[in-house]
Amino acid sequence: MKRVQFEHSPLPYLFIAPQIIIIVIFFLWPAGQAIYQSFLLEDAFGLSSKFVWFRNYKDTIFSDAWLQAAGFTIVFSTIVTVLSLGLALLLAVKANEVLQGARTYKTLLMWAYAIAPPVAGLMGNLMFNPLVGDMYKFMNAIGFDFDHKLDPWDASFVVILISVWKQVSVNFIFFLSGLQGIPNSVIEAATMDCKSSFRRFWTITFPLLAPTTFFLMVINITYAFFDTFGIIDTTTQGAPGGATNTLVFKVYQDGFRGADIGGSSAQSVVLMLMVLALTVIQFRFIEKKVHY
């Protein structure tokens, strides 16, 4: 390929400056501080401070509580991502086929889009309240011995349900617009060649949706890792027995509630590395299968 050299002008730099400044102030600077703090053992007020190499990493990462949170975070994120993508895709495909009252359907499915995670969490908490919650009563009425205050499975079910519910409508909007972006001519040609709509979906529609799916996958994994904080905080707070504790919630617990700045910095650095690795894997290996 021939490289074309344009004349340099400072103007483009000026245009990207606001973005760069935001990244530096809100990401690079705090991330640098976290890395620096993760090597220090300090009292909360910063009056005595000493450099301890990897002590903070060793103390926090090898603790049972952190390992338990890491295990739950991975399982939880996988389930939330797969379910919220799968359900949203199913709903989008079906809603796209509806002819009568299509707008009403779509509006109803987008309904929950703008709800913030803590609000979703509070609503879920109320619905699963052992004294007044309808969902709690329903689960027990249909024969489950449902007790999310003590049963780890039930508690996981509650936080996964709320997290998926909150995210499905966001994914739905993207999938729907992705579906509407597929040219009708392609669909019609495919319909003539193959009468199985199931096969048509997997051979034509789904590959054409791949860029949307990939984008949503990245967004949903980030959501499951970080944004579900608000849901955990307003529902289980990691209970019972730390069974629903996520890594980001633990960083908050140890750093912001427990005043252990070194330890929570070390945890957040590890979390940052995990998400970085995950993102690299996504872009290096999965994106190759995506055709734009």
């Binding site: 003590l150 990691g238 209970a239 019972p240 027995g241 730390g242 617990q253 509630r257 005043a259 252990d260």
Partner: peptide, 22 residues
């Protein structure tokens, strides 16, 4: 010290006693 975290440990283990998992 770090009694906030110690209380978290206690909450978690008391849950385990009550749920029968420990």
């Amino acid at each position: 010290g770090f009694y906030v975290q110690i209380r978290e440990v206690m909450y978690a283990q008391f849950d385990n006693i009550l749920s029968g998992s420990s």
